[in-house]
């Protein structure tokens, strides 16, 4: 579950990163727009998620993997709040129509999957402890 979850969250972060720079890119005007700034932040968050997933494949330490699950959950939640860093005023603008909904979907998926992985590890550990105590 843990490794599958890392692979899936890595895949979601790559797809989302590509989407917010291609089909779902934010508005672009003559001046720098607030949504471009928040999309930049979201891009950095997605790269951090990807790097933490890659590191958890390399570093085979249980504690480190749990830590990456926690950070990925928090970063997924952070993706939901990227519009707070700046967005266009009108709801029909590209950023509010495509970019932020895409980030909301990926944030929910990343946070949900990482949380499920974390819970599964904790439940497994709890069951292991009980079995051990019973033995």
């Amino acid at each position: 579950m843990k490794q599958y979850s890392k692979f899936i969250t890595a895949l979601i972060s790559v797809i989302s990163f590509l989407l917010i720079h291609t089909a779902c890119k934010p508005c672009h005007g003559m001046m720098a727009m607030p949504c471009e700034h928040s999309t930049g932040i979201a891009g950095i968050v997605l790269v951090v998620i990807l790097l933490s997933d890659i590191l958890s494949f390399i570093v085979k330490h249980e504690r480190f993997r749990q830590l990456t699950s926690v950070t990925n959950t928090l970063l997924g939640v952070l993706l939901l709040f990227t519009p707070a860093f700046g967005q266009c005023q009108v709801a029909s603008m590209a950023c509010r129509l495509r970019t932020f909904p895409t980030l909301t979907v990926s944030g929910l998926l990343i946070a949900g999957i990482s949380l499920a992985a974390l819970i599964s590890v904790l439940v497994k550990r709890q069951t292991g402890r009980k079995t051990h105590a019973h033995a």
Binding site: A91, L97, P101, T102, T104, V105, L108, L109, G112
Partner: peptide
């Protein structure tokens, strides 16, 4: 997760 944020 998909349909509600992308309803527009």
């Amino acid at each position: 997760v998909f349909v509600i944020p992308l309803h527009q």
